[in-house]
Amino acid sequence: MKGRPILGTLAVLGYVIMIVPILFVVSTAFTAGDALTFPPQGVSLRWFGEALAYQPFVGALLSSLQLAVVSTALALLLGVPVTLAIQRGKIPGKSLVEGLFLSPLVVPELVVGLALYQQIMIGLHQTSFVALLVGHTVLLLPYAVRVTGASLALADPAVEEAARGLGASPLRTFFSVTLPLLRPGIFSAGLLSFVTSFNNVPLSLLLQSRQFRTLPVTMLDYVQQSYDPMIAAMSTLILAGTVVIAIVAEKTLGFAKIFGGINK
């Protein structure tokens, strides 16, 4: 930062803008009072108890987890073979295929959501869970392809060739060499996908139903009707979960590696 006062100031400002609202939410979650005000009145865990006892939140949390886990698994199941085909295969038009799988990053989610609503829920009479599953899987594919791709790009192709030379079929090579080499990349792609799905609002908002509603959408609903510290408590719980995931990711892989994969 030394000798770069403008950059330094901007960085500090950035952190302040990011962290201050978070601190505000977290501290109000611990209030003993009834109102969402700052500074909080007293300290208690009262609102955490209420949030965890509030049936719509608990149900929505389970729905969100279910959706995030299944769509992450699907995105990896599709994304990993696609990554391999793009990088190791001899297919023509590789960049076209890659572009196709990265395109969900640029197509507005509302457009994807509307299309899925029309096609899957109205057209095929499927539940909103199915529609959401398709939507989230598509949304997560770019992450799965990019992050595992970045880790595959770092792997020496000669290692896989060595396995072939020693007598392993292509399939055997994949399971006993390629997959173990990719494990850190797949793990970070999974974490990133999970968090992306869990926090998603636009798709989940469009494709919700009375039977299936994700946590962020339910919380949004709640805020529109009542404004009390329970919402801050729920947010704090989500924040804590995210922080745990981030720590696990940092401990196992390091952020630079995970996010380096996306910016590459």
């Binding site: 020496d156 000669a158 290692v159 060739e161 060595a162 072939r164 030379g165 007598g167 392993a168 079929s169």
Partner: peptide
């Protein structure tokens, strides 16, 4: 995998 040859790569390529 059907040739039964031993290859040593420049990068060693150990697992």
């Amino acid at each position: 995998e059907k040739r039964n040859l031993g290859m040593v790569f420049q990068s060693y390529a150990l697992f």
